[in-house]
C-alpha cells in the first residue's frame, strides 16, 4: 500500500512539474504564504500609520503604491491584506470541504432516502443566488472576519458534496469495499478509512479552485462595506476608498485589484494543473 501511494504521488508530481502555468501558479501561492507570514518585516510602513501631511500621494520612491486618503502607505496595506485573503480562503474552504465531504460520503454510501433527502437540500441551496444568501446572513451578524469565513463556507459546500457523492457511488461497488464488509468493518470505518482516501483527488481540485472563489467573495463583501471592517486592511476595503477617490487617485484602485487578480489567477492555474495531473486521460 505504502509503495503504491508513493508511486501515485511521484507520478502526480512529475506531471504537475511539466505544467509550466501550474508551476507559476504554485510559486505565486507559495510567495503569498511568505508575504503573509513576513508582512511585518516586508511592509515599509505601519499599515495603519496615519500621516496627515502625505494624503493621497501618487506612487513615488518613498511610497511605491502611493498613499490613501489618510496618508497610509498603500503598499503596506496591500501586503497586510494578503493575510486576510489567505486566512479567509483557507478557513472558508476548509469549512465547505468538511461539510461537503461528509454530506457526499454519507449520501453516496447509504443511498436511498438519506441520499434523496440530502441531495434535495443541495438542490435547494443551489437555487439561491449565493451572493444574496451570504449578504442576507452576514448583515444580521456582528461584522467579523470569523463570521465571514463561516458564512462563505456554509454557502459553498454543495459542489463538493455532489463531487464526493458521485465518487463514492462508484467506489462503493468496488471489490475491496465488499472485502472490508466481509471482514466485519463498521460502516464508519469503511466510509472514513476505505472510501474517503480515494476521494481526495477531486476534493483537492475543488478546494484549490474554491479558495480562489472565497477570496473573490470576501473582497466583494469588504468592498461593499460588510466584510472586513476598516482599519484592518483587506484588498476589498482598500478598493472601497479607491472608489470614493477614483477621480483623484487611480493607484488606490489599481494595486489592490491587481493583488486580487494575481492571487485568484494563481490558485486557478494551480487548481487546473492539479486536475490535469490527476486525470489519466490528459497527456502529461
Amino acid at each position: 500500500m505504502a509503495f503504491k501511494h508513493t508511486y501515485f504521488y511521484s507520478v502526480f508530481w512529475q506531471r504537475l512539474k511539466c505544467n509550466r502555468l501550474a508551476m507559476v501558479g504554485g510559486w505565486v501561492v507559495a510567495l503569498l504564504f511568505v508575504v503573509s507570514l513576513l508582512a511585518p518585516l516586508l511592509a515599509p510602513y505601519d499599515p495603519n500609520g496615519i500621516n496627515a501631511w502625505r494624503v493621497l500621494e501618487p506612487p513615488s520612491w518613498q511610497h511605491w503604491f502611493g498613499t490613501d486618503e489618510l496618508g497610509r502607505d498603500v503598499l503596506s496595506r496591500v501586503l497586510y491584506g494578503a493575510r486576510i485573503s489567505l486566512k479567509v480562503g483557507f478557513v472558508a474552504v476548509g469549512i465547505a470541504v468538511a461539510i461537503g465531504t461528509v454530506v457526499g460520503l454519507v449520501s453516496g454510501y447509504y443511498s436511498g432516502i438519506v441520499d434523496a433527502g440530502l441531495m434535495r437540500v443541495v438542490d435547494i441551496m443551489l437555487c439561491f443566488p449565493a451572493f444574496f444568501l451570504i449578504l442576507a446572513v452576514i448583515t444580521f451578524l456582528e461584522p467579523s472576519i470569523w463570521y465571514i469565513m463561516m458564512v462563505i463556507g456554509l454557502t459553498g459546500w454543495m459542489g463538493v458534496a455532489r463531487l464526493v457523492r458521485a465518487e463514492t457511488l462508484s467506489i462503493r461497488e468496488m471489490d475491496y469495499i465488499m472485502a472490508a464488509r466481509c471482514i466485519g468493518c463498521s460502516n464508519m470505518r469503511i466510509i472514513f478509512r476505505h472510501i474517503l482516501p480515494n476521494t481526495v483527488s477531486p476534493i483537492l481540485v475543488s478546494a484549490t479552485l474554491g479558495i480562489a472563489g472565497a477570496i473573490l467573495t470576501e473582497s466583494a463583501l469588504s468592498f461593499l462595506g460588510i466584510g472586513v471592517q476598516p482599519p484592518t486592511p483587506s484588498w476589498g476595503n482598500i478598493l472601497t476608498s479607491g472608489k470614493d477617490y477614483i477621480e483623484f487617485a487611480w493607484w488606490l484602485s489599481l494595486f489592490p485589484g491587481l493583488a486580487i487578480l494575481v492571487t485568484v489567477l494563481a490558485y486557478n492555474l494551480l487548481g487546473e494543473g492539479i486536475r490535469d495531473a490527476l486525470d489519466p486521460r490528459v497527456k502529461g
Partner: peptide, 15 residues
C-alpha cells in the same frame, strides 16, 4: 479566459 475568471467584477467596474 483565465484572466477573465480571476478579475473581480467590482474592480473591472471601477476601472
Amino acid at each position: 479566459v483565465f484572466i477573465g475568471f480571476a478579475v473581480p467584477t467590482f474592480w473591472l467596474a471601477l476601472l
